Amino acid sequence: MTAPAIVLVAGGPDEAPVTDAFRLIAASLRKARPDLRIRLARLGGVSPALPDVIADLANHDVGEAVLVPLDLVSAAGHDEELDTFPHSPDIHIAVSRPIGPASEVLNILDERVREALHRGGALEVDGLVLSAPAGGDVRGTSLLGRRARQWSAHHRLPVQVAVDDGDGRATAAAVASLRGQGRRHIAVGSVYLTPTGAYVNQQQAALRAGAIAVTAPVGDTAHLGRLILARYAFGAMELLDGTPTQLKVDDLDGEE
Rank of each mutant, 00 (worst) to 15 (best):
A236S: 09
L128V: 14
D110T: 01
P13I: 01
G127P: 11
V73W: 03
R39D: 13
R149D: 08
D253Y: 10
Q204E: 12
S142K: 14
A148I: 01
I212P: 01
L130R: 13
A132D: 04
T215G: 05
Y232V: 01
V66K: 11
D52V: 00
Y199D: 01
R39A: 13
V62Y: 09
T215N: 04
V191M: 13
G11Y: 10
S28H: 05
R42E: 10
A174Q: 03
V53K: 03
L128K: 02
T245C: 06
V175S: 02
V218F: 02
A211W: 09
A173Y: 07
R97N: 15
A94N: 14
G145N: 11
D79P: 04
A209T: 10
L8F: 07
V249G: 01
I108M: 14
R139C: 06
D126H: 03
G121E: 06
L247K: 04
V138D: 11
L229F: 13
G136P: 00
R37G: 12
A173G: 10
H154W: 07
A173T: 11
Q202L: 07
E111Q: 11
A5S: 11
V7K: 10
H92Q: 13
R33W: 00
R147M: 10
Q202S: 09
E80Q: 12
L117W: 01
Q204H: 08
L67D: 02
L240G: 00
H92A: 15
E111S: 06
A230C: 03
S88T: 15
Q204V: 05
I6R: 08
S131D: 10
G145Y: 15
P89D: 09
I91N: 09
I54W: 02
A134D: 08
L229G: 02
T196V: 11
L72A: 11
R226D: 10
P101G: 05
G197V: 09
D56A: 14
S96L: 08
L128Y: 11
A172I: 07
V218Y: 02
A76C: 12
Y232T: 01
D83Y: 08
T141L: 14
P51W: 00
Q181R: 09
S131C: 09
L29P: 00
T194G: 14
A198M: 02
D71V: 05
P13A: 15
D137W: 06
